[in-house]
């Protein structure tokens, strides 16, 4: 594999952490801040930390919005959304008022804190596999790092790859054709995160 994976740098992501991990596992990657460069990408990683509307605005003001639409919908380049990046792939979020990319039939909703349920969901947690995927196996010892107050609710069960329980069950990973999203942070999930990104880089082919 000679073509690099493009990491979208639209001003809302921890691009450095993702780049560092890919470098560590020997995957060629490039942090892209010029939107047009995405169209040449072999695969795309779309990170994101922060609020939903801020993410939408940054995508638009940085010029990535339209290019992402083209790269993902027309060119069908495989894309991995992480955390807010995953949420932005949905239609809408309770966190904001602006529409998301709507690549996946899903909405983003908030956890309700209770005495037993601290929000944000900030911990290492397991996931349960909902359908076969080469990306991960979701065994009991496979824990991923989550840090979020909102989560994705998919309307099509066929899009759901894995779920996690925190109070209620939520989507830990979805896939709709070339569009993949994970709520956890593989780039912060130590060896299991490395294994996941390696599978995305080398094996994932929708």
């Amino acid at each position: 594999m000679s073509k690099p994976i493009a990491i979208v740098d639209y001003g809302m992501g921890n691009v450095g952490s993702i780049y560092n991990m890919l470098r560590k596992i020997g995957i060629k990657a490039k942090v892209v801040s010029e939107p047009e460069q995405l169209l040449q990408a072999y695969k795309i990683i779309f990170p994101g930390v922060g609020a939903f509307d801020a993410g939408v605005k940054q995508c638009r003001s940085s010029g990535f919005w339209d290019v992402l639409q083209e790269a993902v919908l027309e060119q069908q380049i495989p894309i991995l959304g992480i955390c807010l990046g995953m949420q932005l792939m949905a239609e809408s979020s309770e966190e904001g008022r602006l529409p998301g990319f709507a690549w996946v039939d899903a909405e983003v909703v908030k956890f309700i804190a209770t005495d037993d349920l601290k929000v944000p969901h900030m911990r290492w947690n397991t996931a349960t596999l909902e359908q076969e995927t080469p990306l991960f196996s979701c065994t009991e010892e496979e824990k991923y790092y989550f840090i979020h107050s909102y989560y994705v609710h998919c309307r099509q069960a066929s899009d759901i790859l894995a779920t996690t329980r925190y109070g209620n069950q939520f989507v830990a990973a979805f896939q709709h054709e070339n569009i993949l999203g994970v709520q956890f942070h593989p780039e912060k999930s130590h060896r299991h995160g490395m294994a996941f990104l390696k599978q995305f880089a080398e094996v994932f082919s929708p």
Partner: peptide, 8 residues
Amino acid sequence: VAGEVFIP
């Protein structure tokens, strides 16, 4: 540290 340690 961030270049080689992959936890928060």
